[in-house]
Simulated assay, not measured.
Amino acid sequence: MRSVLVAAAGLALSTTPALAATDPEAPVFENGTVWEYSEIATTDGHFDDYLQWLDTEWKAQEEALKKAGVIKSYKVLLVGAPRKGEGDVILAVEYANMAAFDRSVADGYALQKKIFGSIAQANQGQASRASIRTILSTTLLREAVLK
């Protein structure tokens, strides 16, 4: 009896991949990385100032996050001809998965202190950039990796 059960289990396991491949309801994609896109409108006359900040402080911040394993990559995208009400810069940050956002507040604060020196400095920097740019929106997207 036991050998019959083992043989039946073996047969079931060997046919499962074949059945999954022909299953019309099987998913045609897998979850990929998560992207965060922030649409930024620079203040007239401050485009170069903002790009300079991106090239220095923001880039250093993103590199520190990358080194800490929080993000995978980042990009700065420029909008060629923004329409009225649209941004002229898009900041793209790639995370491995949604679990990257499930960090404790204490961990987040500790990382900010490591990058900026203090939470007060981080807040001051954020406030000072308000004169050269406006964050219009931030969108979180998950990539669908087609099979």
Rank of each mutant, 00 (worst) to 15 (best):
5 L>A: 11
5 L>Q: 08
5 L>I: 14
6 V>M: 13
7 A>I: 11
7 A>S: 14
8 A>Y: 02
18 A>P: 01
18 A>W: 10
19 L>H: 04
20 A>Q: 08
20 A>P: 00
21 A>D: 02
22 T>P: 01
26 A>H: 04
28 V>N: 13
29 F>L: 06
31 N>K: 12
34 V>P: 01
34 V>E: 01
34 V>F: 08
35 W>Y: 14
36 E>I: 10
36 E>R: 13
38 S>G: 10
40 I>E: 02
42 T>S: 15
44 D>Q: 13
46 H>A: 15
46 H>N: 15
50 Y>G: 00
52 Q>S: 12
54 L>K: 00
55 D>T: 00
60 A>G: 07
61 Q>N: 11
62 E>H: 07
66 K>V: 11
68 A>V: 07
69 G>D: 07
71 I>H: 04
72 K>A: 14
73 S>R: 08
75 K>M: 10
75 K>R: 11
76 V>Y: 11
77 L>C: 04
78 L>C: 02
80 G>Q: 05
80 G>H: 02
81 A>I: 02
83 R>S: 02
89 V>S: 01
90 I>C: 01
92 A>C: 08
93 V>G: 03
94 E>L: 09
94 E>S: 06
97 N>W: 11
98 M>W: 13
99 A>M: 14
102 D>G: 13
111 L>I: 02
111 L>R: 01
112 Q>R: 07
113 K>P: 00
115 I>H: 00
116 F>P: 00
117 G>T: 00
118 S>Y: 02
119 I>D: 06
123 N>L: 13
125 G>N: 14
126 Q>K: 13
127 A>F: 07
128 S>H: 04
132 I>Y: 03
134 T>E: 06
134 T>G: 01
135 I>R: 06
135 I>Q: 09
137 S>L: 05
138 T>L: 03
139 T>D: 09
139 T>A: 10
141 L>R: 13
142 R>I: 07
143 E>Q: 11
143 E>K: 10
144 A>R: 12
144 A>I: 12
